[in-house]
Design a protein around this nucleic acid. Structure first.
Lengths: 241, 241
DNA sequence: AAGTGTATACTTGCATATAAATATCCTTGA
DNA sequence: TCAAGGATATTTATATGCAAGTATACACTT
């Protein structure tokens, strides 16, 4: 399925955001506008617009006259984002609990099974996992809240992916996601909140530990490109014709 | 104090965001890139970049080939944003309570008094009010959380301003902000959370009522510019030389 | 070897230009 | 009177060009 875009700017935006979220463009990587323009077959103007948008979304860091680099989040920032995510999902859950009917539960179960089926492919698993949680949030029927939740999901995605891929993710003790489906079925609001809260907090603790350990091993320590430092040069494959 | 900017893009961004947050450019207003470019004395390129950034921040709605308009938030969206704001401020408060020393309390008191002093100027009052809350959040020492809180503040600011200016704002029953300062001084975590929570919920209820009433009176009903509708033309002052 | 200049090669920021898409207005026929 | 069609005026999207800012590399000094 080849997506088609209304404008070159949309294509660039989708392209770049995809690379960053997937981790293909790692934190700190320099983004050369000429290169991207050549790759997508357009001029630098739409690329620059896409970069500005990604800057506002927090995916990219831009410095005047110094260009763009993929944003680097500190473990503290990721922790903040994760806590924000938890807060917002719990907020959405308060709305959605009473709106979970049988068909929603069935659909949620399907999402859960789909997630299990791809458990060996971290990238796909993370995507399905986010979708599972987003489905619950969507039942709240609060458009803006939903949008903010999805934004946060995207922002932490590259780091979640690292964590899941690392193999250091703690196996869910009692299959949390099944528990969430089950407790939703009972409709006991207090219990639902409790289960979800403990699910989120359980994940977070390990996740944050992983990120800190990773940082102290030298990854991620690269600050966004302060003062006059040089950006990490991830690719240097000029085509010398 | 004339601010100076590194680039034309920064100037445009700051200029436009300022007009929108202050409510000077009301929701639904068409933003003509030529006009802004002429006003700021630059070409349309930096204007477009600024608009893209504002689009990502939720201040502006852009449609391909149809230009930009100031985003219109439904009362539901504002409600979502307000609830998000509450969640995040409470989250920050959990971090910050234990970090409130005497000097922080003194500074907070000053902010509170400053707020009282400008109570008759809605625009200034709202600004100081936001600062009061942001100061509390800042004590948490969580950079990213702080940034997200400020983002949400900015996003609802135009609506808060309308509310405050309307004169329909319910006078704070027992001077909530003073109560917040006082309870922070006690250091009783549970009480602090309770007071803040009730402060936020109290404001919200009235605020949302106001927005709904306003909408049913015909304001705000203008959707962001769907399909082929024409944008609200707020200004049409061409200079015919 | 490390630091300092400086010439050279890239990049960025942005003005200008132009085709394509939209909006506006005027005309015309039912 | 008014919907439809089409001519004209605007506005948008983006390519191109260029001045100014940065990075790179090599020569020179200490």
């Amino acid at each position: 399925m080849v997506e088609t875009f209304a404008t070159a700017h949309h294509e660039a935006l989708s392209y770049l955001r995809g690379r960053i979220i997937s981790g293909e463009y790692p934190g700190g990587m320099r983004i050369n506008s000429n290169e991207i323009a050549a790759k997508l077959g357009c001029s630098r103007i739409p690329i620059r617009e896409a970069l500005r948008q990604l800057e506002a979304e927090g995916f990219v860091t831009m410095l005047p006259n110094r260009g763009a680099t993929v944003a680097v989040l500190t473990p503290e920032s990721v922790e903040d984002l994760f806590r924000i995510r938890s807060s917002l999902e719990l907020l959405a859950l308060e709305y959605s609990i009473s709106r979970f009917d049988e068909s929603a539960l069935v659909e949620l179960t399907i999402l859960k099974e789909r997630m299990d089926r791809v458990r060996n492919d971290p990238a796909v698993w993370v995507e399905h996992h986010d979708r599972f949680h987003q489905f619950i949030a969507r039942q709240a029927g609060r458009e803006r809240l939903q949008a903010e939740i999805e934004r946060i999901h995207r922002a932490v995605r590259p780091y979640t992916l690292l964590y899941v891929s690392s193999g250091l993710m703690v196996e869910e003790p009692h299959n949390n996601h099944q528990m969430i489906v089950d407790v939703l079925r009972t409709g006991n609001k207090r219990e639902v909140m409790r289960v979800m809260r403990s699910h989120l907090e359980g994940i977070m603790a390990n996740f944050i530990d992983y990120l800190r350990a990773r940082e102290s091993q030298g990854h991620g320590g690269k600050e966004p490109l302060k003062s006059k430092e040089r950006a990490v040069r991830v690719k240097k494959d000029k085509v010398v014709a």
